[in-house]
Design a protein around this nucleic acid. Structure first.
Lengths: 189, 189
DNA sequence: GAAAATATGGAGGTCATCTCCATTTGTCAA
DNA sequence: TTGACAAATGGAGATGACCTCCATATTTTC
């Protein structure tokens, strides 16, 4: 799938510069207010080069997002190895809110992209979804989580959380959503 | 706030035509793929007229959305009068999923708008949020719903649901989210 | 029915997006 | 090293969507 052909030295350099700049702009939150051409200049690159590497804003965002997703997936796996499944799930979800809080600009950028062009990011976030699905499945096997709801519901709720990050009481509400999810997921006795 | 000055006859006619056309295009789901100028022509109106009535896409969407929101608020109030608060809440949330399912194009349009320019729709959706907040508060007063989480969490989850409407297993997942919410909200004994 | 007020529509200006290709840079074989 | 080929660059300019402006048309008022 990712049959990357070896990139020429200068091409790799430019690509890295673009990604580095993108990460900064993302975190600053000004991604959508910046003309794409200007973004190229900001990264010290011609517009043509920018477009060759990343044909669309979404493509660029996905590339930036990729590392982020991978890190989250790792964290899911790590938690699953260290803790009982249901605790791992709880810890992960709580940590997710923390993570979004700490990278507000990034969350904003991503959730905007999600709704404008879901397809572009679907590929990338599928990995995360799979990891969460596995975690939920493990908790179900342990008998600590009900078996009549899927992990998709958790993903949906997470999406709502990250999309709503600019609400005034975001942090408290996000925590509440997680609380409701976890309590709702507990296997009815 | 809405101190509408009486509109001239022809102006009203054009405005209605625009709204009617918008509703169709929304439901068909092609709102964002359509050039705004073309939309004017489609409604049999000059571009200038379109822009005078609705300065932005968002303004148009909000106008279309307005009736929708009002209907939902009415429904919340109606349910609150007919049923115990916690049942009213459950019925409303279930109905909301049904409603989104039945108006997919509209849901898509709205969730896109929500994230692109939250401010534009905030006014309209604030009313809905207030109605839901009241309903949750009533359920808390009844003692059927826990008092340590706010209604904002419910709004967030709903947002996640409507934003994810194009996921393959949307309907089932949406129902799951509601199930989790409701079970999570039930007052712990 | 004439003047004033209000609304119309679409031609054209503005500006971000993206393409194209003459030029530069990197790679590799001899 | 050097020459020749491939790969990559960058920015000028085409493209096309968005929105403004105003001469004209319609409605209302007196």
């Amino acid at each position: 799938m990712t049959a990357d052909k070896p990139l020429r030295a200068d091409a790799q350099r430019k690509r890295d510069a673009l990604l580095a700049t993108a990460r900064e702009v993302f975190d600053a939150g000004g991604f959508f207010d910046l003309r794409f051409d200007d973004f190229a200049r900001l990264a010290g690159v011609g517009t043509g080069t920018l477009y060759r590497h990343f044909p669309t804003r979404e493509a660029l965002a996905e590339a930036v997002y990729h590392g982020e997703i991978a890190a989250l997936c790792d964290r899911v796996r790590q938690l699953r190895d260290e803790l009982p499944a249901s605790e791992a799930l709880a810890t992960f979800l709580r940590g997710m809110v923390e993570h979004i809080a700490a990278h507000e600009g990034l969350a904003r950028t991503l959730s905007t992209l999600m709704t404008t062009r879901a397809a572009a990011l679907a590929e990338g976030s599928r990995a995360l979804e799979q990891a969460v699905t596995d975690l939920v499945a493990a908790a179900v096997r342990d008998g600590t989580v009900r078996d009549d709801v899927g992990a998709g519901a958790v993903m949906m709720a997470l999406h709502g959380i990250s999309a709503g990050h600019d609400r005034p009481g975001w942090r408290a509400e996000a925590d509440d959503v997680i609380t409701l999810l976890l309590d709702g997921l507990r296997r009815p006795l």
